[in-house]
Amino acid sequence: MHRRTFSRKYLGIPYAAFLLLFVAAPLIVLIYYAFTNGQGEFTVQNMTGFFSDPNTLGTLCYSFGVALVTTAVCLLLAYPLAYILATSRLKGKSVIVLIFIMPMWINFSLRITALKEILTWIEGNLAYHPFLNTVLGMSYDFLPFMILPIYTAISKLDGALLEAARDLGAGEAQAFLRVTLPLSLPGIMSGVSMVFLPAMTNYVVLDMLYNSTYIMGSLIGSYFAAYNWNGGSMIALILLGIICLFTLLTGGTDDENRRGGALL
């Protein structure tokens, strides 16, 4: 018998402690700050304030609008592309896929800078089309995150299923609608959750493209700049609620694909 002074499971202790300190504790503090005022007294004012102020409600709606349109644009571009790439028999396919994923690894602020310079050249003044520019910027930023999971899902699809569908008399369109599309749904869900949530919160894209309208993330930014921890915490908490709801609705995501992890 070995005298087990060391066991592999003890290795989990530092990480568990780390998660408690930097993941669990900040969330508890966030909840505390969200329900107190500047003097540390309990209040629901931060929450009622958010849900009764037309400005903040407008921000919530605008965020949803930006996120919805961005997700739709990304999906409309990414799905056909992912389908073409996954079903083609090209030789250097892995290289082509890599080319579409590569932008993920280029610093996003520099990529948005590039887009901004081009849009300024085309439009003259960015202020004329704030919503369009924002959606373009977000789609430009997040498109690779939509392509990869859908591509992976369609690639994994069992070709025999499609053959069976055709043998049973399904036309090409029917085979796509009733076999390929439902089976690629997990990939779509992964992609949607990786685009929708950042599109609600990544306010830097709006800032850089001179769109002065707020989205949910900008509210946290402005509370932070004003040292209003209580107000900021409430927004963060509301965002967390939306994220939880969204994760439940999309049934969680395939972690391997998160932010391009599968390719590294």
Binding site: G12, L19, L20, V29, P198, I220, G232, S233, A236, I243
Partner: peptide, 27 residues
Amino acid sequence: MASAITTMNQVPVVNADVVTGFSICIL
């Protein structure tokens, strides 16, 4: 224990970076 660690691990993964950054700053 394993599922407790996995669940906590999932929080920064699905969370918006704005919220992660802000909550760590507050703590």
